[in-house]
Amino acid sequence: MRTPSKTAVLVALAATIPAAALAAAPAAGLKYERTIYSDTADVALRRPEGVACDDRGAVVVADTGNARLVVFGWKEGALAGGTQVKLAQLPYPVRVQIDGKGFVLALDRRAKRIVRVDAKGAFAGYLEPQGASSNPVTPAAFRVDAADNVYVLDVVAGKVLVVSPEGRVVRELPAPKASGLADVAVDSGGRIYLVDAVTAVVFAADPKATAFQPLSASLKEQISFPTYLTPDNRGKLYVVDQNGNAVVKLGVDGSFLGRELAMGWDDGAVYYPAQLCIDAGGAAFLADRNNDRVQVFQLPR
């Protein structure tokens, strides 16, 4: 066995040691704001894996363990609402997005389908990409851009599909050879990103590219098991390190800029974090799965 580097040892142990026990934590970047523990009826969240937000103040939680979505309002640091949306088509929602029309798109991991939910909380159909070169499309992750195009990572077919708001596949990119592709993201410039949890490599494809290229060599020494990434559209990528219990900042060139947060049960700490959403005001909503809650942080201004 190769001897792990000092950095790798520190990262591995940091994944298991609560924030208070680490001299380096809490990190200076993400500032804890508040925690969402329950809906408006005080029903506790259970293993929530998804959270989406938009610039109009909508926040949607995929409350996975309770087989439902919970819709909140967020304005100037204050949280309102907490309405439950429970649909037969969503037995296990894990990732959510909000499109420009206010529709919620939710990936159901059991059904392996993306479900559309309208603003009133009613089922509005499945996302059924038309014209894909291989069928069926099996989404493992997805993202919606500002023009309501949907970027679907299909790990079974080994492709990333770009689906127009009308449901047509307008672009297909072969996914890179990787055994643990976990997420797809797109920035405001149309650049698509993929992250491989196994090798901790981030890949990118520019708007006219025909293939993904790795942004850097493996970041496995800095990131234990990255399962989600999102650009902040201010020159940084935020990567959720699920097993490492942290959020990792990268430059858009793939350079490592630091780790934020640490493992723990108290407010401000995380335990198997999942989806992260950053709104235009820099509020960062993080689904803190094994802590049964969603936490809100503020990015440095």
Binding site: M1, G180, V198
Partner: peptide
């Protein structure tokens, strides 16, 4: 082979 980070944690424990 895929979950090297988990195995490493055990090795360091």
């Amino acid at each position: 082979a895929c979950h090297a980070d988990t195995i490493r944690r055990q090795e360091l424990s």
